[in-house]
Design a protein around this nucleic acid. Sequence first.
DNA 1: TTTAGCAATCTACCCTTTCGAGTGCTAACA
DNA 2: TGTTAGCACTCGAAAGGGTAGATTGCTAAA
Lengths: 337, 337
Amino acid sequence: MKLSDRKKKILSAVVDESISRGEPISSKDIQEKYLSEYSPATIRNELMALEEMGFLSQPHTSAGRVPTVEGYKKYVDELMTIKRLSKKEADLLKDGFNERLLNLNDVLKKAAKTISSATNYASVVYYGITPSAVIENIVLVKLTEKQTLVVVVTDQGSIKEETNSISASEDELLSANKILLNVLRGRKIGEMNECRNLVTGELLRYKTIFDCIIELLTERDDLARNMAVEGKDNLLSYPEFQDQNKLKNTMHLLERQDDLYKVMSDPNVEVSVRIGGDDEDDLKDVSIVTATYKVNGKPIGSAGVVGPVRMDYSKVVSILKNVTKLLEENDFFGGNT
Amino acid sequence: MKLSDRKKKILSAVVDESISRGEPISSKDIQEKYLSEYSPATIRNELMALEEMGFLSQPHTSAGRVPTVEGYKKYVDELMTIKRLSKKEADLLKDGFNERLLNLNDVLKKAAKTISSATNYASVVYYGITPSAVIENIVLVKLTEKQTLVVVVTDQGSIKEETNSISASEDELLSANKILLNVLRGRKIGEMNECRNLVTGELLRYKTIFDCIIELLTERDDLARNMAVEGKDNLLSYPEFQDQNKLKNTMHLLERQDDLYKVMSDPNVEVSVRIGGDDEDDLKDVSIVTATYKVNGKPIGSAGVVGPVRMDYSKVVSILKNVTKLLEENDFFGGNT
DNA sequence: TTTAGCAATCTACCCTTTCGAGTGCTAACA
DNA sequence: TGTTAGCACTCGAAAGGGTAGATTGCTAAA
């Protein structure tokens, strides 16, 4: 559906104003701030047309216009320009990552905090090793009499687990480690199931250990899955979440990390914008913007924002792009180069 | 201040009813459900007395009574009986911990989820190694060309960090590891600062590595600090949090883990009940109940509940006691026995 | 095609009234 | 002295009504 230039301007104006004010926008508002060359009456005619096309709606007869979900979509797809961040803003984002970050969870948390305070929405940052990760190293170490530490290093980062189901002497562990490495190095995590029958000959002695490792790597869609959610409380400041039901739905969504993860992890596009999630119960009141980031060229996680449909998409997209770039550059995830 | 038996009964009745109904309680309510042997007029006289003592208050002249913070305190300290959980309830709590839990964070999360869904309040579970932890083992392993894994095992659990600031061959690491262990085993984490000057003689060769370890263990109050917060959304169902300000304060508190941690970590008492936190801004609208748990006899963490002042203290205390017991019994934290 | 003018519509706000719940007080009773 | 019935009083919550103001859609003229 092609829009005339003036219709584009007017739709943009309604969306921009809605984003910043959160109230219905009148023809007069638009005339004063955006289109002083036309009278309110002319703008009203255009508004009517845009409403018929499904991009705008009125809460009631004597109110201004509000964008529909379709209107926001049109705006995001065709009308919006993504402003680059100023040097100052970009530096501000960067600053957060300068402090010493000790482990994965700290990194994710810091990233989520940075995003949520820069956008004033809720933020989710996700990291998870994919089945295509290639095993580069395996380390077995005895920590105490009972505890053994298993580390599997992949090109996407490492998986650690302390277990007390391995009981072997240090020497045994060392031999087992070598043999395991021989068999598994270079294989993909996703192939582990087929590796079960590799236990033959001399390997048989270490079957328990082998099984334990395979167990650790197999049949789990949450492999080294880590997620940080920050800034839920930001949402409270938006009038749309005064509505108890919307608020409950959204907060509940943000608490259930297992579901949230499904929404977040679409590694196929660099940036995805989901507006008022098509009818799905928990998503219908919110918009979700996500950006993926890569380690060694493979998408292994994403950073996203959850907020009201009336979201500053342009700002959010540029902030997310910035943060994912920071995550990629700073090599937090121990992937090799 | 001594209360007559009848006053005790009446105060208990008001608190119990308030907890379950969340509305002002009238003399008639009490007469019908708790004290049918007296008339409402008699009960009114007692209510007036209790109000004068500061345990009750009226929202307005023609409303029933509501407990004051003092009233709740009296109830918790002197009147409440802690009901033991039924076998069924206890089993339900236990069930959550039967699944395979891979790491510390999963354990904390599971505990917090269990508590929040059993109580219908928000729950916080905390774990942190204290300065009195004794070093039992140190392991240095090369994971990749760049990454080195440092594990410090203490009697309170282990601290792990991947670093790329150590560049040493495997042989060098091995010798360094031995020497380090010689010097540091048996020492307390809190003594690390004084250990800096132990670098003499042959140790000097490994100064960088030594410094790195010391750095990891020193000057940090967040040593291996882990926290899980779950069930924030539960709070939305309580009418007291319809008040936007209360809700914002509380949600904000629950988001700032650094502050929350301070509130949580009083290892000196087994169970602590903080009601309407004395004037402190963020705490004044909520009650916080915490229970500590121990590893090797030392308190290293706590499990708690954050909810409205009108909280079912009795239920909460018994659930927290149960969960901390489960945490202690199941040996999740890798402390030795 | 644009615009001025205008009646129509609807909310937000305020004011008033009513209704009912629950109290405190008084006086009588055991 | 402790308990209770009776009653006037208070106050909030809900319902009704009226006004002001914003904004529209339509009509007719420029």
